[in-house]
Design a protein around this nucleic acid. Structure first.
Lengths: 175, 175
DNA sequence: GTCTATACGAAGATAGAC
DNA sequence: GTCTATCTTCGTATAGAC
């Protein structure tokens, strides 16, 4: 169910992620929503954010010890695969929550996730010998540019924006 | 009223941009909504997108003839001012529509706007003598990275992400 | 735990008076 | 053109049976 919420967030945004849609997409039993999520939709969204966050972190962590260019390439792969699998119809669930922002705590949660991602990326870069200020700047840029690129590619139904950004980020990571 | 819709989109997203909110924020008369917008909320959102698009284009066009670094700096100023004025609570209205995506036509409209922005930016770069492939790649990267940076700064309630991205983009435009 | 039924409110949209 | 009132739909949330 949380899995379904992440998928729906990426495709339809927060308002498209209603219980009815989640149930229809996952086949989960209607009667047990408030048994598992006493906090209702807000709690479901928090759980979805945590799941999306975990996946990003795990993918990045798997590249520890490798060169910055490899780390960046793997990060880009993650999003390229999302675009390909969904045929350009899915974006980032965390960004969806950020932009919808019905609730300050949800916005904070999304902000914390972005920060955690940047912390990990910067750490991975620094582990490869990159100086810390530059590692942090590159980490933040990679995340921001990729998030924007995924959104643009989705809106334009073309991978052109993503590919241009990926090329630029790859170059940045190598120099 | 369209003006108010743009503001609300940037702050609260599509679901937060209800007629009630728009009216409360603008003082517009309730009875005339469907007189001016027979198409209802969808039409209002399209109008808001057009207004947001125009503003971006006008700001960029004003830098025609100047060096790429100046064009990029002015583009970044636009968004930095938005973050500052709103005390990090506003984002991009076009991105808000992109992510909410209740309607395919709205998504297409948002995509067209991003493409138009990129076309203009690339043209401005090329006018300064930059080779066309690089001009296009830089244009797309500037837009994607800036959109992502604004979203991240809003979520984290910190201008750090934006400032890092701005520094990187400024460097890219100079080389 | 999961079901059905239902209460409650919010938001989009319409009708008709002025 | 703008007003008030109202209708409908939908989504969240709750209650109580099984």
């Amino acid at each position: 169910m949380v899995e379904g919420a992440v998928r729906l967030l990426a495709i339809s945004g927060v308002e498209g992620t209603s219980f009815a849609e989640v149930l229809a997409a996952t086949g989960a039993p209607r009667g047990s929503i408030y048994h598992h999520f006493p906090g209702g939709k807000t709690e479901l969204l928090h759980a979805a954010l945590d799941l999306a966050s975990e996946r990003g972190l795990a993918t990045m962590e798997a590249t520890r010890g490798q060169a910055p260019a490899v780390v960046v390439a793997r990060f880009l792969d993650l999003w390229r695969e999302l675009l390909n699998r969904s045929r350009l119809s899915a974006g980032c669930a965390v960004l969806a929550v950020t932009v919808a922002a019905g609730d300050h705590e949800l916005l904070d949660h999304a902000g914390t996730i972005f920060r955690t991602w940047a912390d990990l990326l910067a750490d991975l870069f620094a582990t490869s010998g990159m100086k810390k200020p530059r590692a942090r700047e590159l980490a933040v840029t990679v995340i921001a540019a990729t998030e924007g690129a995924v959104a643009l590619s989705r809106a334009q139904r073309s991978r052109e924006p993503f590919d241009h950004v990926a090329a630029t980020l790859t170059r940045l990571a190598k120099t």
